[in-house]
Amino acid sequence: MTIDWWTLGFQTANVAILIWLLGRFFWRPVAGMIEQRRAEAQRLLAEAEAKRGEAAAALAGVDSAREGFAKEREAILEAARQSAETARTARLAETAKEVAALEAAAKARIEKERDAAEAAWRERATQLAVSIAERLAARLDGPAVRGAFLDWLLDAIRRLPESEREAMAQDGAALEVISAKPLDPAGQEDCRARIGDAFGSHPGLTFKVDTALIAGMELRGAHLVVHNSWRADLTQILAEMTHDDRA
């Protein structure tokens, strides 16, 4: 067996060249691609890990925010509840006050209306009483009553102060004698004589009739009137009763 040295040299060079060529065009690029993919995968893993960290942080943030929302919601609800309670209390107090005011006003109005109604009824009753008295007094107008009224007129004249009586009855003064019914001449003469005696002088008397007097006899001068009739009495009574009611 012999060795062909040329062939040995060729094969040595061939394999050496093949080693270089494959190293240059196959092993290094493929290994580089594997390394590149490994680096890329590692980068993606790192990125994914970072993203996962970010997501976890974001999730924690969301959880925290959600917890904050729940607390805030509770706080808002509590505040609203307290506000509503305060408003309800205030509204109740205000309503109670308004009700009390309305009740007081209603009571006052009822009291006032009742007083007014009572006063009106009293006035009407008084007027009715006066009217009844007028009718009753009208039936009493007779000679006896007229004599009585003449006597009361003379008493009134006599109770007048001296100065007023003299001023009223000085000679020549014109006085009117008002009666509810006309006096006959005898009656007029009698009245003239007795009134003159009461004054102590002789004033000029004229006789007039006023049915509104109901019954009685009044004396009217230029500055003084002597009331002496049912009408004057009833008017005074009515005024006094009305005044008492209003007082």
Partner: peptide
């Protein structure tokens, strides 16, 4: 320089591999 069959086969293999 003699060129053996194994050298030619090696060249072919080299060509195919490369």
């Amino acid at each position: 320089v003699p060129v053996a069959a194994s050298v030619v086969a090696t060249w072919v293999i080299m060509t195919i591999l490369v």
